[in-house]
Write a protein that binds this DNA or RNA. Structure first.
Lengths: 212, 212
DNA sequence: TCACATAAGGTACGGTACGTACCGTACTCT
DNA sequence: AGAGTACGGTACGTACCGTACCTTATGTGA
């Protein structure tokens, strides 16, 4: 009861200039940066809130004040630090090249994030309201599917395909398959695999009307 | 030191006939049964070794004596209790019907197991030597892909397709897509989706040579 | 038949990580 | 200047893991 004054238990080795207390965005960015580094070094499964806080030179409390759990924190840090695929149609003037370029640009960001993180997030978000956003937008709203459609639209203008005869499944096929490979394997997606997806599957399907 | 005799701390309410101590396979099956029920009721993420042991009316020790961790235990219980897809070619005499039948038979078992369990296992096995088996066999050894190939072989005999002109990717496509849907969504895979996979993607690809 | 290895029952522990509570203190804003 | 806010820091309660250790039943082979 008496003597409730833990104030400064240990005088500390060297109190670094205590006149610098980070706050607001500064601290927030430090945490997100720490989380990002921690994520890339130890992976999602082994990432702990304590380690993130420690690396950011702060403590769990400051982290939990901002994000209620690991999954949300990691999503936040990914939104900030993970490279985003460029979604403008490459527009090389050739359907095949366009699709290849898009897919190759797509895998890099996901490769960096890593399948382990994605799976971990899917598990931790299971049942969460955000779940849908992380797994599958309704396809028609999927930005990557939209990008494919843009490419197809241009090809349609050039007369390479007839867009309105192509089923939605076919449009979404390349993206679905790339995502599947990234989920199901943990080896990097090779250029050869992408070539197969485009040449053996996608192109034959979108171009098939021309065989009539 | 002295008086080391905790023998029977509490005399217990009613010592049920202590003359029945399960052992060997009996106990093992009880644990697997309990794990299976626990898995279906609470899901993989919330399943705990304690709960399994408790439901099996035994204790963690007996569980850990047999399986080193949750993931291995769950795999064991799935091998025992999860229905297995029938892999014999349905052989309805029609390629489309065969593939539809196979896929429809395939989704049921996975549906029962649940995507949450599969994802959880993939996460827990990340880096484990069993990882490959749970995610992707080298495609050429994938029993489901082999089943598709069997179906195609029969169709080839009937003259519906020319098997040796069909790329591996195409053969594996239906299975890959079904797996993807099950991983990426947590809503059940509809018959309509399966129909699309077969009619919009698979059949056009395997039958396309006939358009020449 | 009985001693003994084996394995089940059971308790308790050390360890990790989570998420929360609390307090004192620095900073910011008006 | 004063007050509210948010950071730094510690400590706590919970949950679950995986292990250690001991007691007790079982059934097998000497």
């Amino acid at each position: 009861m008496a003597d409730t004054k833990p104030k400064q238990a240990a005088p500390g080795e060297e109190q670094p200039p205590s006149g610098t207390r980070r706050r607001g965005d500064v601290l927030e960015n430090a945490i997100l940066q720490a989380a990002w580094e921690e994520l890339r070094e130890t992976g999602y499964g082994k990432l702990t809130m304590e380690a993130v806080a420690s690396r950011a030179k702060t403590n769990k409390t400051a982290v939990y004040r901002r994000w209620p759990n690991k999954a949300k924190l990691v999503v936040a840090t990914m939104m900030k630090h993970a490279p985003k695929p460029s979604l403008e149609p490459p527009d090389t003037g050739d359907l095949r090249e366009d699709v290849l370029a898009l897919l190759q640009g797509l895998i890099k960001p996901i490769q960096i994030i890593g399948s382990e993180t994605i799976k971990g997030l899917m598990v931790d978000f299971h049942g969460d309201e955000l779940h849908a956003k992380l797994t599958l937008p309704p396809r028609s709203e999927d930005i990557l599917v939209k990008a494919i459609k843009d490419i197809l639209r241009q090809a349609d203008k050039r007369g390479e395909v007839k867009l309105d005869t192509i089923p939605e499944r076919v449009v979404g096929l390349p993206v679905d398959l790339v995502r599947f490979e990234l989920l199901a394997t943990h080896t990097p997606l090779t250029d050869e695999a992408i070539r197969e997806i485009v040449d053996d599957l996608f192109l034959p399907l979108v171009l098939r009307e021309r065989n009539h």
